[in-house]
């Protein structure tokens, strides 16, 4: 509880300030190591990236890093990244809502199903990427084509078209990350009183209208938070896409990696793309802060 002095008296000397506020100041001191750590390892590097993005190797100011990347296709990398994000979020939330609503019921085998549904959270991204590459390779082979062949369908070249390539990455990413959304939505379901469903049923609402008028409003806060977390992580998708589809179509993160790899330790060009990435993530961060402030 807040002990801040709201009486509007003039500021007191340091010692008395400490005495009056030590209930808040001492806990704050406990938090300081973590703040120093994230300040140095998260916020300072973030600031450095923005600074690098406007620098030449002789440290003078320039827009060249951005101009050069615009000519190489920066806008298409942005749009590929955003389409991937939108598609992956749509699939993950569809799947997660289905799984969470099943886990909200009682049936035999529920515990096992709950465990199965969160197993992918433990699988390393690079392992998931390789496995899905074996399911959807660009060569016309792969496990998905084995299944199609047994149904008499001709092999599909999964990476032949950029839309198709983004789609298989969306499927792979949703496999890996839907678990997180499920966990958050299950927590949301737990906050909805059962009585609301009973009342809705008595009022004649079927399953669909119960979902629309009871479940969705009850889950709203959880859905928004999960969307923001996953949205920011989705924009940062890197190895999964790189292992599965390489650079076709190109994403912002993969481009940052390739520019950095080829730079021999000179961060300026890569930092311009990094800063664009940061800009997109900042949109999600601002929404988090604004929504939080309104609570």
């Amino acid at each position: 509880m807040a002990l801040a002095d709201r009486s509007g008296r003039p500021p007191a000397p340091v010692a008395s300030y400490w005495r009056r506020h030590q209930d808040q100041l001492i806990p704050f001191l406990f938090v300081v190591p973590a703040l120093v750590y994230v300040g140095y390892f998260a916020f300072y590097p973030t600031f450095k990236t923005i600074q690098y993005s406007f620098q030449t190797p002789i440290l003078s100011f320039t827009y060249f890093n951005y101009q050069s990347n615009v000519q190489s296709g920066l806008y298409s990398w942005i749009s590929n990244t955003l389409w991937l994000t939108a598609g992956a979020l749509a699939l993950q939330f569809g799947l997660a809502l289905a799984v969470a609503s099943i886990l909200n019921r009682t049936f035999r085998g529920k515990t096992i199903f709950g465990t199965i549904a969160i197993l992918p959270i433990g699988i390393a991204t690079v392992v998931a990427a390789f496995t899905f590459n074996q399911i959807f390779p660009g060569t016309g082979a792969g496990y998905a084509n084995s299944v199609l062949a047994s149904l008499g369908i001709a092999p599909v070249y999964w990476l032949a078209h950029p839309w198709m390539a983004l789609l298989v990455v969306i499927v792979a990413d949703s496999w890996k990350n839907t678990s997180l959304v499920i966990i958050i939505l299950v927590a949301g379901y737990a906050t909805i009183p059962r009585a609301l469903y009973q009342a809705a049923a008595i009022d004649g609402a079927g399953p669909l209208r119960q979902f629309r008028y009871v479940t969705l409003p009850g889950l709203r806060g959880f859905i928004v938070m999960a969307l923001l977390i996953r949205g920011a992580q989705e924009v940062n998708i890197f190895q999964l896409a790189y292992i599965m589809i390489g650079s076709y179509p190109q994403l912002l993160t993969v481009q940052v990696y390739l520019l950095w790899e080829g730079s021999g330790g000179i961060p300026y060009l890569a930092s311009a793309v990094s800063t664009v990435l940061l800009g997109i993530v900042t949109v999600f961060i601002v929404i988090v802060i604004v929504l939080g402030g309104r609570r």
Partner: peptide, 22 residues
């Protein structure tokens, strides 16, 4: 302060990793 930690979780790893490695 929770929001600060939350924001740290959202920052792109690759963006942070490059200056750190420098």
């Amino acid at each position: 302060l929770t929001t600060v930690l939350f924001v740290v979780n959202m920052l792109p790893s690759i963006t942070i990793a490059i200056p750190i490695s420098v």
